[in-house]
Design a protein around this nucleic acid. Structure first.
Length: 608
RNA sequence: GCGCCCGUAGCUCAACCGGAUAGAGCAUCGGCCUUCUAAGCCGAGGGUUACAGGUUCAAGUCCUGUCGGGCGUACCA
């Protein structure tokens, strides 16, 4: 399901322009946008219908050219005209300027667009010295808050946190690359009843604050032990509840202990972030407890607006669009019957903070799909209460559950959750074994470095490359596979290019770009260039639908096209002008792969 | 019960506001290394897109129903 909230597609609002002007603007827009604009306008002029949509997409088959316009046929239908004739009339109106070699009518009324070889080559050449210009900054930067990762500090990060952390981080990188102002928010769980239990247990096992680090070394085991005692020992359970009350009452000793605990737990998270190369900093931390003081205000505001109903002792907001079992109205409970606040209350406070203090125009929640109803309710209540302006977009960027190979949620054999840090260590270990088997000639330190990047990259890429909303099967063998749409394949493609470039540099030759111009001499070169120039289109797509898998597919196809080029076209052995051109193309590809991988959060390497 | 998501090749997955002959990888089979890293490339086989209707010039995609699966559904997060 693509975001229904984002419906501002189409080309309305652009000024009309002649074909000749359009070519000059190509550096400002993607090829696709330029062609879309051009053909949409021509279609409007020919049909007399305002704001026609050309529906421009990459050609579905190579013989159909580079792009195709699908929009003529539905317009012809509206006009009761022959679609092929209408398409022909549109083509007549289009000039084949610098960008396009020719347009042609095809099939039932498609317009196929064949880009000019000269334009492609000169565009690629022009980008050689300043490749960053391939991806333009957006004309309308937005302030976008991204809530992602957000683990619960009571426990250690486990596999359930992996997807949100990886996907969120990639989305952030992509949005930033396009020029948006992104504000990360790590909404960690650092408050609530389980902390009473943990603090009570901590006090039991150790009076000595200095030994706290040792006690919490294995947070997961610590939590389990505390929980066991809580369930088995009524007296301890009582102490735990008292501990919560003291903590919430602002007792200094309790708060200090709590701070130490949170600090220790955060260190665990940061170790995972470091290993995963996640760009989440302390300054991005906005824990649940941050909103504690604003929770009473949320309740009173809801009350003031007559949104609050007390039901079975709990303070609720009932909205007509939410129904539960037996068509009973379904509440969003914002205050428990014992007076305590909940997840929903904190989320409402966070929404208000993000919309007002952070001035967000979009807020993305990269959170498990199972919380879909929760966010629907929270968003609806926030809007009803006016906590966000109507034009501020709130989007739940949902992701599916991580499954084991058996199709059940990913667990250890004993049924426990797998610690994320252990999973990552295993990834690196497996990668090390692979590298050692494949490249025994490399020294151990080099193999360790390679294993680190390949192992972590494999875990991240396996996740990113799959449909975000589907449940996803975690499988070591397929993610570390050497072929297919995997991190090792892409990283290998990159190292091959680097290897060529190194050889060229060793030849003491001047920089590639000084003298070289990219020329198209084969179909493989041409396909590669067309693909390279499409990067900005893909990034735009990901920035609007939040599916990093589109970027993965693009990079996989790009790497595949390079491999084909590599097999078909000698580079270093080519004659000088062609040699320089192919070297430049190789360098362009390497840079694009590197940039794309970086936007996914993967590090490249020089050799494998 | 109701709501959300899903059902595509033996397996894991694609398919860009509906578009031309539904594509990759794995697995299977067959080719390519004295030549820039074979962790690669080329080729072959493999499909009633769960099922039944409907809308449309055009449906894997939209609508209705059926079957199957996952998740959610009042004081956890």
């Amino acid at each position: 399901m693509y975001n229904p909230a984002f419906s501002s597609r189409g080309s309305g609002g652009y000024p009309r322009q002649s074909a000749n002007q359009a070519w000059k603007q190509i550096t400002m827009a993607t090829i696709r946008e330029t062609l879309d604009q051009l053909i949409s306008d021509a279609l409007s002029q020919v049909s007399g219908i305002a704001d026609c949509q050309a529906i421009l997409v990459p050609a579905s088959r190579p013989e159909f050219g580079d792009y195709q316009a699908n929009g003529v046929m539905s317009i012809a239908k509206q006009l009761k005209k022959n679609p092929r004739e209408l398409a022909a009339a549109v083509c007549d109106r289009l000039e084949s300027g610098e960008l396009v070699d020719h347009f042609e009518v095809a099939g039932p009324g498609f317009i196929n667009i064949h880009l000019s070889d000269n334009w492609l080559a000169s565009r690629a050449t022009a980008l050689l010295d300043n490749q960053a210009e391939l991806v333009q900054q957006t004309a309308r930067p937005e302030t976008i808050v991204v809530d992602y990762s957000s683990p619960n500090l009571a426990k250690e990060m486990h596999v359930g946190h992996l997807r949100g952390t990886i996907i969120g981080d990639s989305l952030v990188r992509i949005l930033e690359r396009l020029g948006h102002q992104v504000i990360r928010q790590n909404h960690v769980g650092d408050w609530g009843t389980q902390f009473g239990m943990l603090l009570a247990y901590l006090q039991q096992v150790s009076d000595d604050l200095d030994s706290l680090s040792t006690e919490l070394e294995d947070l997961e085991a610590f939590y389990r032990a505390a929980k066991e005692k809580f369930d088995a020992d009524p007296e301890f359970a009582n102490q735990a509840r008292n501990s919560v009350v003291r903590l919430q009452g602002g007792d200094e000793q309790s708060l200090m202990l709590w701070h130490r605990f949170i600090e220790e737990s955060l260190r665990h998270c940061e170790a995972v972030y470091d290993k995963l190369q996640i760009r989440m900093r302390r300054s991005d931390l906005r824990a649940e407890s941050f909103y504690n003081d604003s929770l009473p205000g949320i309740i009173s505001e809801l009350e003031k607006q007559d949104l609050l109903t007390v039901s079975q002792g709990a303070s609720c907001v009932f909205l007509p669009e939410f129904q539960g079992k037996e068509n009973e109205p379904l509440p969003l409970i914002v205050q428990k019957s014992d007076g305590g606040y909940l997840y929903a209350t904190t989320d409402l406070a966070a929404i208000r903070f993000r919309a007002t203090e952070l001035a967000a125009e979009r807020v993305l929640y990269v959170v498990d799909a199972r919380q879909g109803l929760h966010f629907q309710q929270v968003f609806a209540v926030a809007r009803a209460a006016g906590f966000v302006a109507p034009e501020c977009r709130l989007e739940h960027v949902a992701y599916g559950t991580m499954m084991g190979k058996d199709g059940k949620p990913f667990k250890t054999r004993s049924g426990g959750l797998i610690k994320l840090i252990d999973l990552l260590d295993e990834a690196v270990r497996r990668a090390f074994d692979l590298v050692s088997a494949r490249s025994p000639e490399l020294d151990e330190e080099t193999r360790r470095e390679i294993a680190d990047k390949v192992g972590i990259g494999a875990v991240k890429y396996a996740d990113l490359s799959k449909n975000r909303t589907s449940d996803y099967v975690f499988d070591w063998d397929s993610m570390l596979a050497l072929d297919g749409n995997t991190a090792p394949y892409l990283l290998y493609a990159y190292t091959r290019i680097r290897s060529i470039l190194r050889r060229q540099e060793d030849g003491a030759e001047a920089s590639i770009t000084a003298t070289s111009a990219i020329a198209i001499t084969t179909a493989e070169e041409r396909q590669l260039i067309v693909k390279l120039l499409r990067l900005p289109e893909i990034l735009q797509t990901v920035a609007t639908d939040y599916y990093p898998s589109h970027l993965c597919t693009y990079l996989f196809e790009l790497a595949g096209l390079f491999m084909r080029f590599y097999e078909a076209c000698p580079i270093l052995k080519a004659e000088p002008p062609v040699r320089a051109s192919r070297l430049a193309l190789a360098r362009f590809t390497a840079a694009t792969l590197s940039e794309g991988l970086d936007l996914l959060g993967l590090e490249t390497l020089e050799q494998m």
